[in-house]
Amino acid sequence: MNFFQIIEEIEKVDPEVYDRLDSRRAIFNSLRGIGQKVTLATAPLALSALFSKAYGQTSTIPAGVRGVLEFALGLEDLEYQFYRQGLDAPGLTATLTGAGRTAITTITAHERAHQIFLRTALGATAPADRGAAPFDFTGSKGGTRQALFPTVYTDYNTFLAVAQALEDTGVRAYKGGAPALKVSPDILTAALNIHSVEARHASHIRTMRRTIAGGVAGTPSLSASPKSWISGNDGGGPAPSATAGIYAGEEITTQATINLLTNTTPNPSVALASESFDEPLDAATVTAIASNFLR
């Protein structure tokens, strides 16, 4: 794998790759076209630099789209660091094992891939990856207030509770950002394709929490809360009031003025009606939630 090979592959689907300096959308078309031929993940950082030159002209991404992508990148940075530190935490080595460690490792890799993908899309002026420095996942804001989750990296249950909070927040955030991406259909599709992966993560983290709560290790059960989907505004376990906003509004049972409780035959319970739709969150609320984990 080298740059010339990659460019040749791109040239097959985008003959004007060398001239292309002004089409943001082209990068996604190109990536889709060559996806079967090269494994982009093998040289992501190098590719990022390449695409930044060929496609990364900031002026060609509408400002609104760029804002959403940068916001999404911030969340991916946060999620990746949360899991990375969890995998490395000495206090979790005895409990984060087996299928649980495998799953967290998988999710960590996905968040990393999302980081790289979004930085590539944003190009040369993408916000820098500051690593672990900005984050304090105990929620003490660098020791300046009482920690919200003092045992996040020593207690497995707390670790998973925070993981669920971050994943569910991510799902709501991507949903909230979608309309602003409509002007760039390829970017919208890419964002939707990240959004559903975050939802898969959230589902699995919730399944893991039930397993701990009363099931057989490694075998999903439904012995306790939380369900794999958001029921009412129940976060499925103790969470400090600082993060209550994560589930605020999820309890609604009316969608587009249609009352799901009476519209559905037979009429469902309030819980099931609330579960059947996830809700978006605006950027300000997401920022407020995320800021709990910033120094």
């Binding site: 299928a99 939802a199 993560h201 589902s203 999903p220 739709f277 996830d278």
Partner: peptide, 30 residues
């Protein structure tokens, strides 16, 4: 409005998909 509604539903479908996959083989959620 429709785009947001589709987004509200697709994440629930993704939660379903992940759990069904985990029932078949734990860890295959994505």
């Amino acid at each position: 409005t429709y785009l947001t509604l589709a987004g509200k539903i697709v994440s629930v479908e993704a939660r379903h998909a992940a759990l069904i996959r985990d029932l078949i083989s734990n860890g295959t959620f994505a």
